[in-house]
Computed example of a mutant assay.
Amino acid sequence: MKKSVFVLLAALVAVPAFAGAKCEKHPQNEWMPKEKLQAQLQQQGYTIKKFKVDGNCYEMYGHTRDGKKAEIYFDTKTGQPVKSEISK
């Protein structure tokens, strides 16, 4: 019994680490063109390895100007970051 409770608790704790961002839903005709956001990120020094739509967010995988691994979620209308994970 103790082992199964521990496994359940471990699973519950791990879930938020893999959860994506929660972005506000906007009509697609109001979305910032992904090419525009990608260009802005590259001007800021980001290297983009993968850029996709994830639910109601744009999601970027790549590296920062100083080479740190980055996973960033953006609002599709404003292009503002909603959630980011930058490795050290």
Rank of each mutant, 00 (worst) to 15 (best):
Y61W: 13
Q80I: 01
Y58I: 09
K77I: 01
L41T: 02
D75A: 03
D75S: 02
L37V: 07
F18S: 01
M1Y: 06
K3Q: 13
T64V: 03
Y73G: 00
E30A: 11
P33D: 10
K36F: 09
K88V: 03
W31P: 01
D66K: 05
K88C: 00
F6N: 09
Y61D: 15
K77F: 03
F74W: 02
F51H: 02
F51S: 02
Q42G: 07
G55S: 04
T47Q: 14
A14K: 00
K83A: 09
W31Q: 05
D54E: 15
K68I: 01
S4F: 13
V53I: 15
A14I: 04
G67K: 07
T76G: 03
D75I: 02
I72K: 01
L9M: 14
D54R: 13
S4Q: 14
K69Y: 06
K68L: 07
V13C: 09
D75L: 03
Q38V: 10
G45P: 00
A10E: 10
G20A: 14
A19N: 06
L37T: 05
I48K: 05
K50L: 13
L41F: 09
K88I: 04
N29V: 11
K2M: 06
K3W: 09
E71R: 04
A70H: 02
F74A: 01
D54C: 11
S87C: 02
H63L: 13
T47L: 13
A21C: 11
E59G: 10
V5R: 06
D75F: 03
H63D: 14
M32V: 01
R65K: 15
Q38N: 08
K50I: 07
F18R: 00
